[in-house]
Design a protein around this nucleic acid. Structure first.
Length: 425
RNA sequence: GCGGAUGUAGCUCAAUGGCAGAGCACUUGACUGUGGCUCAAGUGGUUGUGGGUUCGAGCCCCAUCAUCCGCCCCA
């Protein structure tokens, strides 16, 4: 039964279970970022549309952004990506930052697209970038951060692979085939779409774009050449560094990875789940050496990537790699026997909290079976009972809900006993 | 923007055009101070919404809304 006021299409409600997944991703992303010394930052959630007009691609700005007029009549948009905001923030303090800048962020983004598997209109995204260095080793580091994340969530190389390519390398190949720069964008799109189209249809499409038959044949040769990276000094150095960083197993050169985004200039990469039901990329990124200039800064090279929470969430769930959900952060329940004894229970709960134990006390006198059932459903570990018999003798019944064992302990020893059980659980 | 599918109990789903059901969950009891396991009983419905066809519609038709899957696009 749907509520009278439905949610906005494509938005998401994070019930505690989904929230724990979001927090799990936040933790893993933070850990991978910080392992390499990256600093956390964030930008505005609302930006003017102009920020994205320059470089983000027409489709994104015109059709996939949540844009509206504010009360002052300005066109604003809910951010569909972070990189332009990052570029502006860097440009604004370009002369006072310590380089290389290593920054990361995990926050909400919005895109007005048709919701489907792996795609929502509201999502969280991990962004991580290094600016101020244009070395192939910097590219390797960013890719290594990504691989570190994959490893930390236990997606092994057999399951998740990072495909790497280089635009400069591809452009030199295009040049050699006589494909002129004015066709670059179309040819990039062509390459991007190859895996999704029937071979014959793709050939047709290629000829429509304006390639000659010999250029098409040449292009197919290039795209099938998995040793092509040897012709690129950049990629050779990047792969060497990745080997030294211990991440080579996650990496594969793939000349078919182009990425649609206009601002990439050098190495580009994209990760896919190689076994699951989802064909979407887990994350993608690359080197963008002109972006700062484009937003009005001094030239500054950069490399980075972004990962949405939706696809990785589905993959981890399908792979059974999500941690077991713990309904309540409290492991201890203090039951309330009856109205007369309830204040005793509240006092005991307060003591447990003072001792650093997260504790729930039942908020009304209810039948014990109901209270125990609550503790069970919440996967709590210890239940305490303070009934008339115990109150009289200064005791508390302490039940280990994991094994059902139950003991009576003196009131003063409760904290220590509970801690003992929790330590062994 | 285009195409396909699905909307029935809190959840997952059944029901040839002829009495709207099951499992799970919930409540109660078996068990008067103890969860899980078991057994029994009970509560729970404007079949998404609005029209139409029919003696009769959950089922057929039209419209509409929502969700899911795909296309487009993917930063």
């Amino acid at each position: 039964m749907t509520s009278k006021v439905p949610t906005v299409k494509g938005t998401r409600e994070f019930y505690p279970e989904q929230m724990s997944l979001r927090n799990f991703l936040d933790e893993k992303v933070r850990a991978a970022s910080q392992a390499f010394g990256y600093q956390e930052y964030d930008g505005p959630f609302i930006e003017t549309i102009d920020l994205y007009a320059a470089k983000s691609g027409e489709e994104l700005v015109k059709k996939q952004s949540f844009t509206f007029e504010d009360r002052g009549g300005d066109l604003v948009t809910l951010r569909p990506e972070l990189t332009p905001s990052l570029a502006r923030m860097i440009a604004a303090k370009q002369n006072e930052l310590v380089y290389p800048v290593r920054w990361w962020s995990f926050g909400p983004f919005w895109r007005y697209e048709q919701p489907q598997k792996g795609r929502t209109r509201e999502f969280f995204q991990w962004n991580i970038d290094m600016l101020g260095v244009d070395s192939p080793e910097a590219d390797a580091e960013i890719i290594a951060v990504a691989a570190t994340f994959l490893r930390s969530v236990k997606l092994d190389p057999a399951r998740a692979t990072i495909y790497v390519n280089n635009r400069r390398l591809m452009e030199s190949q295009f040049d050699a085939l006589g494909i002129f720069p004015d066709k670059r964008v179309e040819v990039s799109n062509l390459v991007d779409r190859r895996s999704k189209m029937e071979p014959a249809k793709w050939d047709e499409y290629a000829l429509e774009v304006g390639l000659s038959q010999s250029q098409l044949d040449g292009l197919k040769n290039v795209l099938g050449n998995y040793d092509l990276w040897k012709k690129s000094d950049e990629l050779t150095r990047t792969f060497d560094a990745l080997e030294a960083l211990g991440m080579k197993e996650y990496i594969k050169f793939n000349p078919n990875i182009m990425r649609g985004l206009l601002y990439y200039t050098g190495t580009v990469f994209e990760a896919f789940d190689t076994t699951g039901s989802l064909k979407r990329s887990i994350f993608g990124g690359g080197r963008y050496d002109n972006l700062l200039e484009d937003v009005g800064g001094q030239p500054l090279p950069g490399v980075g990537f972004a990962m949405g929470d939706v696809v990785i969430g589905i993959i981890l769930q399908e792979a059974g790699l999500l941690p077991e959900f713990t309904p309540t952060p409290a492991q201890v329940l203090v039951t309330v026997f009856d109205e007369k004894l309830s204040s005793q229970s509240y006092k005991l709960a307060a003591e447990l909290r003072d001792a650093g134990l997260n504790t729930i006390v039942y908020p009304e006198p209810a039948k014990l079976p109901k209270q125990f059932k609550f503790a069970d459903r919440m996967k709590m570990k210890v239940a305490l009972v303070l009934g008339p018999d115990e109150a009289e003798k200064g005791l508390v019944v302490l039940k280990n809900l994991l094994n059902g064992e139950q003991v009576q302990v003196p009131r003063e020893a409760v904290v220590a006993s509970v801690k003992g059980i929790l330590n062994n659980a």
